[in-house]
Design a protein around this nucleic acid. Structure first.
Lengths: 169, 169
DNA sequence: TATTGTTATACTCTATAACTATA
DNA sequence: TATAGTTATAGAGTATAACAATA
């Protein structure tokens, strides 16, 4: 990214930056018509939240799917890739390389099932559990920040978000 | 995607699907530790919302950035690619192909600035305005659905989301 | 026949860096 | 020197389709 500082208010009506307008800025962009859309603010908030989390955790070990996959495996040792793909709502062909990557890093273990020899049982290695702990620590700190922002409204916010996700899916 | 029906409750504590467990399902995945995180629910809600919108609008003309870019251009005729890139929070090198694509489809017009011959002034064509109208109609219908879901809490929800986006960025 | 998991392949979105043409 | 915009390139993340092994 080569942006210095946004000179645009994307979501609201207040200019964030009051430096003198340059020629190329003579029409300060506004997104007025999108401003009333829940979906639009959902996107901005999610985007900001994800970037902030990525920054905090050092970017490297994060990756959207990785974290969620590790949490699911941690909480469901022995889960199959198929079940995992349903849990994180991604295609099975997306899960395969994800798991291979985690295995290559020594974070996940794959064991052929003895009862159904087509399937594989996934579990976190000791290293995987440690890394997950670290990621969860980052996530908690990140969410503390979000807690400060939303304050006492947190339960209500989560309820609404869950309602949106459940109803639309 | 090859998923049939989720047999997993991702965000809450209630099973959505009560069919008999199959062998591969013997450890029904739960995401308990993520359940208290605002960021996690943000991601699920945004994901669900985006998918629903994409489905509604027929997928073709949608695309995340396209819509936002067209709205910004519509509201700021003559805006330069640089200013646009700041408005949609993407790198200028991301904006170039986006605009080229819109131009190829006859939706956006590029005119060399006469005052600063480095820069370009963007505007929507007649076709572009029509397409945008259609997209906005879809967006409105989509948001009506979201309105039904969040009801009277909508202003509060938008306020919270905006607060998150503003504070974290 | 149906399912699990892998592979091959492709598409979208995004960014960094290097370049040009201006300023 | 600095900025606007383009190009070349690369890397995530995702999906569809076809396949082998197994059920």
């Amino acid at each position: 990214m080569d942006r210095t500082r946004s000179d645009v208010e994307v979501g609201g009506g207040v200019r964030r930056d009051s430096r003198a307008a340059k020629p190329s800025d003579n029409a300060p962009p506004v997104l007025a018509p999108l401003d009333g859309f829940v979906g639009f603010h959902l996107r901005l908030a999610q985007d900001a939240s994800f970037r902030a989390f990525a920054t905090r955790s050092g970017v490297r070990n994060l990756r959207p799917g990785r974290f969620a996959a590790m949490v699911v495996i941690h909480n469901n040792p022995g889960i199959t890739p198929m079940a995992l793909s349903r849990a994180i709502v991604r295609d099975k062909s997306t899960v395969t390389p994800l798991i291979q990557d985690l295995e290559r890093q020594g974070l996940v273990q794959r064991v052929r099932s003895t009862v159904d020899r087509r399937s594989v049982q996934l579990s976190l290695t000791k290293d995987g559990e440690e890394i997950l702990d670290q990621l969860l620590a980052h996530a908690r700190k990140h969410d503390d920040k979000l807690d400060q922002i939303v304050g006492a409204e947190k339960p209500k916010l989560i309820l609404l978000l869950r309602k949106i996700a459940d109803t639309l899916s």
